[in-house]
Computed example of a mutant assay.
Amino acid sequence: MAMTAPDATSGRAGLEPAAALFRSLGDPARLAIVHRLAAGEARVVDLVEQLGLAQSTVSKHLACLRECGLVDSRPVGRASFFSLTRPSLLDVLVAAEVVLAETGSRVALCPAYGTPDGDTR
């Protein structure tokens, strides 16, 4: 999806899919999972161990990401290996890192979206 400058006819409705994408990445646990899967596929147990999250948390967020079409899984025996379905998602993560670097991570201090103490956890 190419983002272009809005014109008078596009309105906000045309931006809803992009807003939904950013909401899907808006939870730190989901973002950590996506970031980890960018390095390659992983099982739930791998994600639990590597990210320090509860198994139920990882499973819940993987289900959300799967419903959004961002991850998929393949069964191997009794386990499932999860991977990103859209390699272009990596471009979004890289672009976000560039914006954060260019703004000095000021979004962490934003009263509407940052954390109260500016911690970027």
Rank of each mutant, 00 (worst) to 15 (best):
A63I: 13
L109C: 01
D46K: 11
I33W: 07
P87N: 04
L70P: 13
A108E: 05
M1E: 13
Q55D: 11
V71C: 13
R74G: 03
S88N: 05
A112K: 01
G26V: 02
T115M: 09
S59P: 03
Y113A: 03
S73N: 04
R43D: 13
V107N: 01
A18S: 10
L89V: 11
V48N: 07
T9R: 06
A95T: 12
F82Q: 02
A96V: 07
L100Q: 07
P87V: 05
D119Y: 03
A96C: 05
A96H: 02
E49M: 04
S10I: 01
P17Q: 09
T103R: 05
L90R: 11
R78N: 06
D91C: 05
V48C: 10
G114H: 01
D72N: 09
R66V: 12
P116V: 03
A79C: 14
S105I: 00
L21N: 10
T115D: 15
G40T: 11
P111R: 01
R36L: 07
E97I: 01
A29V: 15
R36C: 04
V34H: 07
A112E: 02
A5L: 15
M1K: 07
S88K: 12
C68W: 13
G118S: 02
A8T: 09
R66F: 09
A63T: 15
P28R: 14
L93D: 06
P17R: 09
D117I: 04
